[in-house]
Design a protein around this nucleic acid. Structure first.
Lengths: 159, 159
DNA sequence: GGCTTTTGGTTCATGGTGTGAACCTACTCT
DNA sequence: AGAGTAGGTTCACACCATGAACCAAAAGCC
């Protein structure tokens, strides 16, 4: 390779870093706006919507599970779950083996709303990806995957 | 190509959409944590740090400009600016042409802190990109750029 | 069995982020 | 000069989130 041997760790040119930072900031902003818009659209709070979506993966969840998945203090979950229960989207059932635990699951209305939400969310992603040339889509998503891994690795370096 | 001609708009396979959504969610989470960590590290609030960074581009800013750049209500800016002024990082000077306006600019301490912050921030980006194979970096950032554009376009479609 | 300890959840106090309305002052436009 | 407009501040309010205190039930342990 024709690299300058004198420089010890130049590696990444400044303009790339600058672009990268700016792009990431923009994308984060977009994501935030989108999730707000989406919650609004379905008449939920953002946190509630995020919580509701967890029931796409599992039929029954406990507050503790939700707290872990959402990466949020358990006291916060109490509120969020209460909101969803009030709205009639999820319900509590007693755990037969442990009376401390409420098993949370979707009501029919919750199920139905979740279906709409996931459809809508998928549609949004589809729209975004449609602006990308078809032959680039796989490459981009692979890039993103690599980037995500890098970001997680970097994060874990900070304690 | 060997596509089924019967389906009108299949286009993007489901697994791609799914990956995409999950990756974006993860990355957004990472970004959020990082900016929180960063603010903490420099003893600022997140909003204050974001505000401070704006002074990297321009020497003088008004509350109105900041509000536009941060995409936040002007009442919020009052608070954020007050915080930065209290901390001695920015100062207000009267606008000679319009006494309603305060021209905001960095104090020496603010300047110094900003320098540290941008250095740190650049370093974080560098670390992240270093986990990416060097020959892929440019490609990934170009992908990101394309994706950002798509996301903005998609966002603008929703009113 | 009785004791402590742990665990799942709730409530409360607190603080950061943000909006929108009301308001004041100063500028602008006739 | 008077009406309207623009920059800022303050206030009331809502959401997101944490940590501490607390309770009840379960698990461990003599």
């Amino acid at each position: 390779m024709n690299q300058k041997p004198s420089s010890p760790a130049p590696e990444i040119p400044a303009f790339l870093l600058r672009d990268f930072q700016e792009i990431m900031a923009d994308m984060a902003q977009c994501c935030k706006e989108r999730s707000q818009f989406q919650a609004d659209r379905f008449g939920l709070l953002e946190a509630e919507l995020r919580c509701l979506m967890l029931f796409g993966d599992e039929r029954y969840l406990t507050s503790k599970h939700i707290a872990r998945k959402m990466n949020v203090a358990k006291s916060r979950i109490s509120k969020i779950v209460a909101g969803l229960v009030d709205r009639g989207l999820i319900k509590r059932s007693p755990d037969p083996d442990d009376s401390r635990i409420s098993l949370l699951s979707l009501t029919p209305e919750g199920q139905s709303l979740l279906t709409q939400v996931t459809a809508y969310s998928r549609e949004m992603s589809r729209i975004i990806l449609q602006f990308i040339a078809p032959e680039q889509r796989v490459a981009i998503i692979e890039s993103l995957g690599a980037l995500r891994t890098s970001m997680k690795t970097a994060r874990d370096l900070l304690e």
